[in-house]
Nucleic acid binder design. Sequence first.
DNA 1: GTTAAATGCAACCTATTGGTTGCGTCGTTT
DNA 2: AAACGACGCAACCAATAGGTTGCATTTAAC
Lengths: 111, 111
Amino acid sequence: MLRKVRGGPANRAHVFAALGDETRLALVMRLCGGESRSISELAEGSTLTRQAVTKHLRVLERVGLVRCVRAGRERHFEFNPGPVGQMKEYLDFVSAKWDEALGRLKVFVEG
Amino acid sequence: MLRKVRGGPANRAHVFAALGDETRLALVMRLCGGESRSISELAEGSTLTRQAVTKHLRVLERVGLVRCVRAGRERHFEFNPGPVGQMKEYLDFVSAKWDEALGRLKVFVEG
DNA sequence: GTTAAATGCAACCTATTGGTTGCGTCGTTT
DNA sequence: AAACGACGCAACCAATAGGTTGCATTTAAC
């Protein structure tokens, strides 16, 4: 994935990297439905260990894609949409730059 | 990044993982401007070796974010917008599901 | 036909990932 | 207070990522 950046906040690459794993993608899919879940709940359906799921949740939490709130002896994780917006902004920028380039090419070809 | 999936086409996680690296993010930024560049050109501005840049380009190529066309003794890499669209679709789906959940919550709270 | 440039290929190295197991801790529950 | 449930922490492991170096190959240029 990514080398850890000492103390730095999550940059774009880290956010993309956080989604660059099937397990974490599946976790986000489950959590974006609105209901927050405990670690054990999230691990229950999976073939993975609870600790493995915990590690993935931490990765998602570091980049802000999920946040965790303590509830008694459980930790409930819920989706946080902020970074998704950031990613879309980046992708839109790339698309726009590409479309603009295509536009220039068209003008050039057509005279 | 991701364990290699034997023979399978690039799934969503692989595409996100491909952007989960600062160097590759920078490469995409340079290439989405429209002009295709050779490996040496792309390596020139970088602190990295040509071979390192080559490896990153292959990662981007595997998921379809760039494609390569041979031109004499050079290989020119150009941006390909397809996977960006796929990523946006996924992110839009997640956002929509989240907004829908918020909507249900609002209805529940307001009676 | 040499030479030089752009690239391919393979070996190698280190740090990180993704996963496990074992055990300690902290709240709940009875 | 004892037992159980959800969790944190640390050690450990195999595989991969990211990077390097060295050398062979192709192609352009002189």
